[in-house]
Design a binder for these strands. Sequence first.
DNA 1: AAGCTTGTACACCGATCGGTTTCCTCTTGG
DNA 2: CCAAGAGGAAACCGATCGGTGTACAAGCTT
Lengths: 189, 189
Amino acid sequence: MATTDKASPRDRLLDAAAELFYRDGVSLGVEALCKSAGVSKRSMYQLFDSKDEVLAASLERRAPGYAARLTAGPDDADTPRERILFVFEQVEKSSTEDGYLGCPFLATMVELKDPEHPASVVARAAKEKLKDAFREQAELGGARDPGLLARQLMLVFDGASARAGAKLESLDGLTVETVRVLLDAAGVA
Amino acid sequence: MATTDKASPRDRLLDAAAELFYRDGVSLGVEALCKSAGVSKRSMYQLFDSKDEVLAASLERRAPGYAARLTAGPDDADTPRERILFVFEQVEKSSTEDGYLGCPFLATMVELKDPEHPASVVARAAKEKLKDAFREQAELGGARDPGLLARQLMLVFDGASARAGAKLESLDGLTVETVRVLLDAAGVA
DNA sequence: AAGCTTGTACACCGATCGGTTTCCTCTTGG
DNA sequence: CCAAGAGGAAACCGATCGGTGTACAAGCTT
């Protein structure tokens, strides 16, 4: 009932895990997860060593699409500045959909509070990739200090995520406006 | 063993709750909490209706001191700009101490994922108070749009908290640097 | 000293936790 | 046609979950 049902047990499981761990938090029980995925616990433990590995795998599976949806601008003719702003426009658009709880990788790491957890390792790598993408665009855009700008952008990105996840903000234009200020200050035309 | 032991059971309980829920997350069990506080479960349930209420009360207790430590500048002769920057200097200083996991109110809300939870209500109020303090200083400092600046500052504040909680960043000077840019853009001398 | 409150210690409740095992039903290839 | 493997249903494991009930030991007031 949760997912496609024609996919393999592994896919059903990871899809359900990505959705439910995101919505309900990492404390979700294995029983509920498997029931929602339409997969027996037995199958789950044949495919993965533990619940923690399922969580890590579900994040890893989600990572490429997540990055792609954020960074892939509508057109490659854009400027670096527009590509950076596009990311935050996507964030703001997502934040209007209900069920949005911010970046799933950030939320998972905050909940786990354990940088050594396999899921935290996956999540950290995903965040690093986004930061690298920011840095690359910052360099292309001629930023005075691309590393600093990339870190600032991550700061705003994760601030928006956290506040969205905490249901603290409607953030209508806030992040885009803020990023514009940072881009200006960094000298990114 | 966890706390002063001369204080009342209620105080011991709330102190332990603030510390342990912050460090280990809200999934910490009542048994472990009470044992660490040196209070019997029976007493806890005479003082509070549920674990959720204990969590909410522990946040409420923490709120005044938290706000005070952040906003109380060293000297009232400071300018609004300096008072705002002082907050982020405090955040950066805190983030160097080990065991720092960012703003406890934000972390709790992210973990709970439920804005109706009594602890979320308390946490949201605490965040609002900080935002109001920012806004007041923004007005005093002659910001072009005090409301916008206050929201931007909260964005940076919570971004720093979330990334610290996720152990993603060392943030050496990053937030102060970023806030300076925002203050300049807002016209706060 | 009696009686009350306060708090502790501890057994207990049903439910759920992560994880294992058994049994049975499918599909599929030889 | 039939054996083998994949996968689901469900019982089961010890531990823990949030929460309660009971019995007992202190301190207080009168």
